[in-house]
């Protein structure tokens, strides 16, 4: 049927149709990924991402990369292998950041009136580009998992420090030492979110003194390597193109 006669009248028209497919396909990929990555992200690392007074040097640094390397690994597994496109991680991160920023601005700020400087999301484009560039230059998933995954974990904290650092300046507040982020959390009342559900470092990594963030990032990088491996196969499975006769 369709292979015997042609649907397009010229190579030029074929190119034109192909471009339309590109743009629509990009829209579809971007927004489906935005939806599913965002729901995954907000329910596995969301609280750290919502609030400045959760962005600590231990648990945020640990949790975010580990749970967030999943989708980039899965998307890379398909679009690099089948299309040789080196932006699987970047498209995921741009998607979730789009979803987060729209919500932070139109809802956290314009519906419930939390200041933006308290509810900004985690920056991660730098991690994604690193992961994509490693895959493109090495052409190896193994190398990407080990080097890319490790870098993914290590880069979170320094890449976010320009945004988060100013909020860690100390303040003496009513006789207590608090960071600006702590004061934000105290001032801007969250009726449904009491202070105790906040999961941040409580000084239990005593042995390493001030090196909490690097140790956490290193552990996170290690876990990211393992999760990258697993999710590579998850991605391949979701890239299957089978038909089923019976459901």
């Amino acid at each position: 049927m369709s292979t015997t006669t042609s649907a397009v009248r010229s190579h030029a028209e074929a190119v034109q149709v192909s471009r339309m497919v590109d743009y629509l396909g990009l829209f579809i990929l971007f927004f489906v990924l935005t939806g599913s990555y965002h729901i995954h992200g907000m329910l596995t690392m969301g609280d750290w991402d919502f609030w400045a007074d959760w962005k600590d040097r231990r648990l945020w640094v640990t949790v975010y990369p580990i749970v967030m390397i999943t989708f980039p690994a899965a998307v890379q597994a398909v679009i690099w292998e089948r299309l040789r496109l080196p932006w699987g991680a970047t498209v995921c991160i741009l998607g979730i950041l789009f979803g987060e920023w729209v919500n932070r601005y139109f809802n956290f700020w314009m519906w419930t009136y939390f200041p933006i400087n308290f509810v900004f999301p985690t920056a991660a484009v730098h991690m994604a580009i690193f992961l994509d560039v490693v895959l493109m230059l090495s052409g190896s998933y193994l190398f990407t998992a080990v080097i890319g995954g490790l870098g993914w974990g290590l880069l979170l904290y320094p890449g976010n420090w320009p945004v988060v650092g100013p909020l860690h300046v100390p303040v003496e507040y009513n006789g207590m030492l608090m960071s600006i982020a702590d004061i934000q959390g105290y001032h801007y009342v969250r009726t449904g979110t009491p202070e105790y559900i906040r999961m941040v470092e409580k000084g239990t990594l005593r042995t390493f003194g001030k090196d909490v963030a690097p140790v956490s990032a290193f552990f996170s990088g290690f876990m990211s390597i393992l999760i990258y491996f697993m999710w590579h196969f998850v991605g391949r499975w979701f890239g299957n193109v089978r038909f089923v006769k019976r459901t």
Partner: peptide
């Protein structure tokens, strides 16, 4: 999907908190 899974789902978080 974007509106459902991203926009209104995180918005629900905004409301509950």
């Amino acid at each position: 999907i974007y509106w459902g899974a991203s926009y209104f789902t995180e918005q629900d978080g905004t409301w509950h908190q």
